[in-house]
Design a protein around this nucleic acid. Structure first.
Lengths: 340, 340
DNA sequence: CTGTTAGCGCTTTCAC
DNA sequence: GTGAAAGCGCTAACAG
């Protein structure tokens, strides 16, 4: 492609009239006589020399790469997470190897192996399949939400339990008397299961009758939500619930569409609170629905920090970050929503 | 960290009782006597050997890395593009180095240099600052939308001109008589400038009086849109326009909110067509507003293909992909919108 | 401080 | 086919 290859350290050494080691020292900031340094710097400039990061990494067996394994980044939650990881990784002078598994277990495994082969410094994984057997225990790793048996991999996530309680409390505060919970989830255990636990706990605490839809996600969620709606219609057409805590904003939004299509008004007839804090156009300040917002930036930063922690034994096995409620048009917040 | 280091090719050779070269040949699929191959394969399995991709890449001076330089991926358009690039890169057995510049010119330059140092196989750039001087001409590169003087870097983009015409035609078809165009753009020339040209061309063609807002983006778009609205109110409160072609879905959506806040109904009073094809939750089938959709997946694939093209001279200097109109609730499409 | 030297793990001649 | 040997570009001892 290019006729003359790039200059190497040797070329610089020759041009500067010093030894290889001296050039290396200059580049690595090891103290060097001022005179030598200047000669080397001049030669570097003259030759347009640039260290070969690859050779450097190879020698130090330190690639400076961080692999992020994530289902996909079309989903706004994932893309926000990825964006913040990219920022944190950059701040630490690392490079981000993006691995979108597109929910394919075999791709997740392939990426895990790729990460190993590529000698990455660490792996941040958001995965929803059974890859426990392919995890390498001698490369720093952190998982978001998921929990792997047989591995002591640190986990980072949001405080889902408290968030779920908060959702119920907010619905009650805004006038709901019968909040239900809808959920579609993967078959693998994860921190977000705590959202259901939180809902159940809050129901008990406030003397409510729990009522919820808890299904394994099989791509038929819309159908199931429609049926759930039918099952909760009274003979006169009114509903037996007046509030919805949705496992994710996406499900909340989907349910909102179904409700509206059936003639129910949101938030007049039914209020909805989701989970995640997804904004239109990725802008945090314009939520798709009212939501319990995950601190995505902080979550991403925690993951990166965790990877970087030299002393692996001192990394907390579980880090839970606090969530917050934010208005997004599907609740009757005083001040935001004109009371009837 | 890990007590015993990973086995090397040498270990495999010793265990299999063959030479280093033979092991290398087995791994690289070079014909080898069946007997030797089996011995080597057994040793590999026994030792759990895995090639060190880093050393391999170093030796071949071929990293298999593709750098994607993109402003950020909070924006759904960018995240979709990134997702599809990731997929294409994976399909070609390459690795994706994600570089989010967060609109910082210095970060773009830093990433460009990083890419060079890291000996990436290619660079895909979506950049909106003046990095022409830092471009390395001997590493395959492709830019999306942008145009760099002094460099013959292949460009990939959508057929913005035709798309703009299509937007105007659709607005007319759905009953508009006075479509305006709103635009906020960077100071650097790019393919998307053709959207304005297309609007102007369509106005001429259909005998319309062009009327548009064309501003450099300085983060005050909402303010300017409000003023634009005021300037187009008649004494009786009605508007002098009844259709909007927005430079992007984001601007179209922003304008929609402003219109609605001022008491105008979309699409009853004003119809809006944006550009990009942004969906809620990244799902293509639920657009935020009616839009001229860019073929994001195809664009991403074209970029990757372009990078991979061995014969750089045969890469088209400009590739324009066709766009399509899709309904997203802000137009009065027959069938979708109940005519009054 | 600086020059010398020995590799990192792998590919790739080159004789055998 | 296969083994031996020469590096890829760089870092990290090690003497001097």
């Amino acid at each position: 492609m290019n006729a003359k290859k790039n200059p190497t350290m040797k070329d610089v050494a020759k041009a500067a009239g010093v030894s290889l080691g001296t050039v290396s020292n200059v580049i690595n900031g090891v103290p060097v006589r001022k005179e030598s340094r200047e000669k080397v710097e001049k030669a570097i400039k003259a030759l347009h020399y640039e260290v070969n990061a690859y050779a450097q990494g190879f020698r130090k067996s330190q690639t400076g790469l961080v692999a992020l394994i994530i289902p996909e980044i079309l989903n706004p939650f994932y893309s926000a997470f990825t964006d913040y990881v990219a920022e944190a990784v950059y701040a630490h002078d690392l490079k981000l190897l993006l691995c979108c598994s597109h929910e394919l277990p075999e791709k997740e495994v392939a990426y895990l192996n790729l990460a190993k082969k590529s000698k990455v410094n660490g792996i941040i994984a958001l995965t929803y399949s059974d890859i426990g057997d392919f995890i390498s225990d001698n490369i720093p790793m952190v998982v978001f939400d998921r929990f792997f048996e047989n591995h002591k991999i640190p986990r980072v996530g949001s405080d889902n339990f408290t968030g779920a309680c908060l959702a119920v409390e907010k619905l009650l505060e805004f006038g709901c008397t019968h909040p239900v919970y809808i959920r579609f989830h993967s078959i693998f255990p994860g921190e977000s299961d705590k959202r259901r636990d939180g809902y159940l706990y809050a129901c008990k605490k406030y003397g409510l009758e729990p009522d919820y839809l808890d299904m394994v996600d099989q791509g038929n969620s819309e159908e199931l939500l429609k049926r759930f709606l039918e099952d909760h219609k009274r003979p006169d057409g009114t509903l037996t619930f007046d509030g919805v805590f949705a496992h994710t904003d996406f499900h909340g939004y989907t349910f909102k569409k179904i409700l509206e299509r059936s003639g129910y008004r949101v938030p007049e007839d039914v209020q909805i609170i989701g989970f995640d804090g997804i904004g239109k156009f990725g802008h945090e300040d314009d939520l798709v629905i009212s939501s319990i917002c995950q601190p995505i930036r902080q979550l991403a930063e925690k993951c990166v920090e965790s990877i970087l922690q030299e002393d692996r034994a001192s990394v907390p096995s579980l880090t839970l970050l606090p969530v917050t409620y934010r208005y997004g048009g599907t609740t009757r917040d005083p001040g935001k929503w004109p009371e009837a």
